[in-house]
Design a protein around this nucleic acid. Structure first.
Lengths: 153, 153
DNA sequence: CAAAAGTACTTGCACCGTCAAGTAAATAAT
DNA sequence: ATTATTTACTTGACGGTGCAAGTACTTTTG
């Protein structure tokens, strides 16, 4: 429901421009980066992200639900990403000892190697489409602003 | 190909933070806004965007290819969006007179009404998730930065 | 002006992600 | 303790999007 306490002030000029720009970025950038990853590293962005998150986690493992939240996917979505990675041998699954309902996704050595192989493509993509274009802008301020934006369901 | 002239300098701290924040926003925000639109206006974001673009176009019509570019979708993706909207009576299709290969998507009166009905939900969603959170930030600078980012395939 | 090449769009197929329903285990209630 | 409820995750059905191939028209070329 459009919480109608106040009468929904329309966008002013500045806001309008920002919203358009943000719309562009939010619909276009994921596709562009994902396309780069698939082309240059044969690894979709969603899978790359999962591997990366695991590589940074203690003991290179995470509960499915944690991983889903961290990767900004639904739990079922993450189940499928992990299933694909498991089939390729990059992840193994281990029942969670302290709660038998739960599963850990565990990064294998092959998975770690795959990640090391893939990250340059990700870095290059981000540099090409984002950082190179932002020369002269205040990156810290931009990051601070973006971190305020609400992105969780 | 990760164009390897230079050896791909890794991200510094500031860049790292920015890239994470941008990743969050770019994967999360479209889902959040789309979910709002579906829930509050029963109109997915992609369809809303198409209607909006048409409403601003001269004679409320656009060539399919124009519309695809403007909406940041592939041509085939836009074909399907338009097909859905046509089925609901919000868009009609008219052969392009000066080039019989081409089609115009034309916003109908029903479509315009639908858009007027739906935009408050979009506005509310954007205010809620984005603009409200950005109080105190320099919106113009943010917009200028985002507009530099490359988002076209 | 006929044939070849290019352009505008659509369609078949495959993939990915969501929701809703299902399973299994933990926790709460009686 | 048994049952009911909640939690963690998986699976089935579905919708949306891209790519590649197909169709129809246009432009170029010899």
């Amino acid at each position: 429901m459009p919480q109608d306490g106040r009468p929904l002030r329309p966008l002013d000029e500045t806001e309008e421009v920002l919203v358009r720009a943000l719309g562009e970025v939010m619909t276009g950038l994921p596709r562009v980066v994902d396309a780069d990853m698939v082309r240059d590293a044969r690894l979709p962005l969603s899978e790359y992200t999962a591997l990366m998150l695991l590589s940074e986690a203690p003991r290179r493992r995470m509960r499915m639900s944690e991983l889903a939240v961290a990767g900004n996917l639904s739990l079922s979505g993450m189940t499928r990403v992990v299933a694909r990675l498991e089939k390729q041998g990059f992840i193994e699954r281990a029942r969670c000892e302290e709660d038998l309902r739960g599963w850990n996704a565990v990064l294998t050595d092959d998975g770690f190697a795959r990640l090391e192989e893939a990250w340059p493509a990700h870095l290059a993509s981000i540099r090409r489409h984002v950082l190179d274009k932002l020369a002269g802008h205040d990156l810290a301020a931009l990051a601070a602003a973006l971190r305020q934006v609400e992105t969780r369901l």
